[in-house]
Amino acid sequence: MIPFEYLRAEDAASAVAAVASRPTAAFLGAGTNLVDHMKLGVASPELLVDVSRLPFDEVEPLPGGGVRIGAAVRNSDLAADPILRSRYPAVSRALLAGASAQLRNLATTGGNLLQRTRCVYFQDVTTPCNKREPGSGCSAIDGYTRYHAILGASSACVATHPSDLAVALTALDATVVVLGVHGERQIPLADFYRLPGDDPHRDTVLEHGELIIAVDLPDLPFAARSTYRKVRDRASYAFALVSVAAALDVADGSVRDARVAFGGVAHKPWRATRAEEVLRGAPISDESFLQAAEAELAGARPLAGNEFKVPMARNTLVAVLRELAQEEAR
């Protein structure tokens, strides 16, 4: 860890100005990921601007029926929020599937979205990694791939995004509200994360100095029938091998609408639009669900060592859709 300066931001605008004006500055939320990276030498910010105390710590209704989640809302508070629990249960369940109680008590909404990959090579500065050190090579492709991508990867990077929350938010059409030196902008979460391509260094489309101040969930009545299923090697405190966030709108024995995203399979939360297309109008049956899963996973390109993720993702999606359909039928 290098010596660094610490600044507690008084307001959002000054926080943004402080980080934007200095290439080696970084925002500090709870620090549950960033501080680890500083100790490991993965990140070396010279200035930390603490935004965890800015007044973005509330969940508020939006005009039009949506919900705004402040970027500083702690994961455990958000998981327990009555609005989230009743109208967007997938979000609440995703949060509770993540990390440990201690980490959830500290971690913020904005910080959760900006977690970096848990790729073991990214986290070890003694091994090549294009994400950490562009141009140094990818150690994972021919290495330990259990937690790595099967969709959307490149020859430069096969890392996955570790957030559970982001998967649920992606499925439910959330939008990220960002403050930069030139003011606010809104970015659909589906466009917020990048695929690695030739430039895996960047996880998101955020510019340096842009601060997440909120996440907006749109009014989506059938999200009340949504859930999150995380498959992992340990019953708690483990990152997803595969996860599924889904919402299902069912009428007269068929699917009227669906929202589906996978976690643990790509550089970003993977919105399964092909699966959603197959599902819309399809009869409720394991066969439909299987077709949807296979449509999405037809493009899967597993690595040596993570081939199992394809059937795991397929089976998990089918199981989640079956469960939601049954729930709807009650």
């Binding site: 848990r118 073991v120 090579y121 986290q123 070890d124 003694t126 091994t127 150690s139 021919d142 290495g143 330990y144 090697d233 340990r234 019953a235 708690s236 405190y237 483990a238 990152f239």
Partner: peptide
């Protein structure tokens, strides 16, 4: 302990990546 033979390195060298049964297990 996942040994990456190219490096001679146990790559999952922390308690997040080297899994030990958690209470829930």
């Amino acid at each position: 302990s996942v040994m990456d033979p190219r490096f001679g390195l146990v790559v999952n060298h922390d308690l997040a990546e080297y899994h030990i049964a958690a209470n829930a297990d």
